[in-house]
Design a protein around this nucleic acid. Structure first.
Length: 299
DNA sequence: AAGTGATCCAACCGCCGAGAA
DNA sequence: CTTCTCGGCGGTTGGATCACT
């Protein structure tokens, strides 16, 4: 909160022309002033707002404070597995277009997503001594992190997923494809790595499809076009993947993803420890296992 | 309990593009 | 066409807090 840093020694002032502008952490009084002003006059015209509201802040500062902190629909707290999954996929697609990514995560700000990426995802890449933008790291994320996120996503959305939704079959790698891959690079396939790809329990598998197929609810028609296969699973190439290109991303958001995910039971491989509440990212990443995973990736 | 390093995240900075003058 | 202002964006900083020893 703003009070948290109110006593900071960094709290200082700068001179700009005739006017003395404040910098540093916002006080409760300033927040209140900004909220009341916007309630009366609306957002926008930030420089005018800064001048006429009585706040000794720059328009930019007011805008940032409002958008990143004070806006009523701002969601606080840890990112859900669904949100992490979406961030990873969208970042793979768009790169550091934080504001664009943020538009698909209601209540989350570009700043928050940027911080998440830099502090958690890039940290893992640094420790692995690989570029976070490299295909190697992306493969590691797809093969290792995403299955876990999907597992957790499934468990967290199992209560919310309406059973009345139409079902679509999500194709996993076929047995034939698996055999092909096994022949192509047998060293890539091991019991140790396969366990991360193990599809969820038999109760959610479709009996009429391949052994790896699972059934996902169809996304609401209002948020998703006539695209059926949005989540694919190929343990022998790129692992689990939410194919965001299958969606119209300008109208797609986390609610769509959440609604589309299967009612997975939490598998025995879930590393979540409910006692660890501070950082969900850390719960999902295990460096030893990720290192192990990377060794198994094709060159 | 104290010290230290790691992590988180609010806030700032500089740059850029759009639009108005 | 040029200049200026403003809003938006991505990158960076640094204090607070947490975790570990």
């Amino acid at each position: 909160m703003c009070e948290k840093r109110a006593s900071s020694s960094s709290y200082d002032r700068i001179e700009l022309g005739m006017e003395e502008l404040r910098r540093g952490p916002w006080t409760v009084e300033e927040d209140t002033l900004l909220i009341h002003y916007i309630a009366c006059h609306g957002e926008g015209r930030w420089n005018l707002l800064a001048r006429s509201s009585g706040l000794r802040r720059t328009g930019k500062s007011c805008r940032l404070r409002w958008l990143n902190y004070l806006k009523p629909d701002i969601k606080r707290g840890n990112l859900s597995p669904e949100e992490q999954l979406l961030i990873i996929e969208l970042h793979a697609k768009w790169g550091n277009r934080w504001s664009r990514i943020a538009r698909h995560l209601p209540g989350r700000t570009d700043n928050e997503i940027k911080n998440y990426w830099r502090t958690r995802v890039q940290k893992q890449a640094r420790q692995l001594k690989i570029d976070a933008d490299s295909t190697t790291f992306r493969d590691a994320v797809r093969c290792y992190l995403m299955p876990r996120l999907l597992e957790r996503t499934g468990s967290s959305s199992s209560q919310a997923a309406p059973s009345s939704l139409d079902a679509v079959t999500i194709s996993a790698a076929t047995t034939a494809a698996a055999d092909q891959a096994r022949q192509a690079s047998p060293r890539d396939i091991s019991d140790a790595s396969m366990r991360y790809y193990e599809p969820p329990g038999p109760e959610i598998r479709s009996p009429s499809t391949s052994p790896c197929s699972t059934v996902l609810p169809r996304l609401p028609a209002t948020t998703m076009a006539e695209s059926d296969v949005a989540v694919t699973f190929n343990p022998f190439s790129s692992g689990y993947s939410v194919d965001v290109s299958a969606y119209d991303l300008d109208t797609w958001d986390i609610a769509s993803l959440s609604a589309s995910l299967p009612s997975y039971a939490v598998s025995e491989y879930t590393v979540c420890n409910n006692n660890c509440s501070r950082n969900i990212g850390d719960r999902l990443w295990s460096m030893d296992e990720l290192h192990d995973m990377l060794r198994k990736l094709p060159e």
